[in-house]
């Protein structure tokens, strides 16, 4: 089992519903977020293009955050989901520095927090909150090892990219182009 996500940049309108849904689902404190939307504008008027991307922890297979965590708080769960065990975290912030995606933040309660792929929902067979709420249905969550999944299907049929591949982290979020 290998959980991953594909996000269709052609359909995303950048509404940030994924961000609000994550905050209300996971009690993310005001002023913080586990996911966010990036807009990249390219070209010169009127030959301009926009890429809109919902970004979050890439749940990397080769995770610098897990490797550098001194207490073992950052660890892998089933399907490669990277989690932070709040009780073990001393808030040193090494993982924040090591992440090429700036996906982690210091929670006011003293630990480091980030996207969990909504593991509490996934364990019950539901999509993560961001995926389940997206009005444009531009996000696909699933198991890369399940050949029948919608996720594998879109990745087979569409061009895609991942972010900062040069970092060698083997990110598990794919952007459909």
């Amino acid at each position: 089992m290998r959980y991953a996500m594909a996000i269709d940049t052609r359909k995303c309108v950048g509404c940030s519903d994924c961000v609000v849904a994550c905050q209300t689902e996971n009690d993310v404190p005001n002023g913080f977020c586990r996911d966010w939307v990036k807009e990249v504008v390219d070209g010169t008027y009127p030959n301009v293009s926009i890429e809109l991307r919902s970004e979050r922890c890439n749940h990397c297979a080769n995770s610098p955050c897990v490797r550098c965590c001194p207490t073992g708080a950052s660890h892998f769960e089933e399907g490669g989901i990277v989690l932070v065990e709040h009780n073990k975290c001393i808030g040193c912030g090494a993982c924040i520095e090591s992440c090429p995606y700036e996906a982690r933040y210091s929670h006011p309660d003293g630990y480091v927090d980030k996207c969990t792929f909504c593991i509490h929902r996934v364990r019950q067979g539901n999509d993560p909150a961001c995926v389940s709420v997206c009005p444009t249905r531009c996000m696909y969550f699933g198991d890369l090892e399940d050949p029948n999944s919608k996720l594998v299907n879109v990745l087979k049929n569409r061009k895609f990219k991942s972010l900062a591949p040069e970092a060698g982290t083997q990110p598990q979020i794919f952007y459909l182009l």
Binding site: C15, V19, V20, T24, S132, V133, C134, P135, R137
Partner: peptide, 18 residues
Amino acid sequence: GNDDDPQCNGRLCPRGTG
């Protein structure tokens, strides 16, 4: 969102979610 509602198909927008 209410899954049965054709106006949202179970998916509220950010304002509705918020």
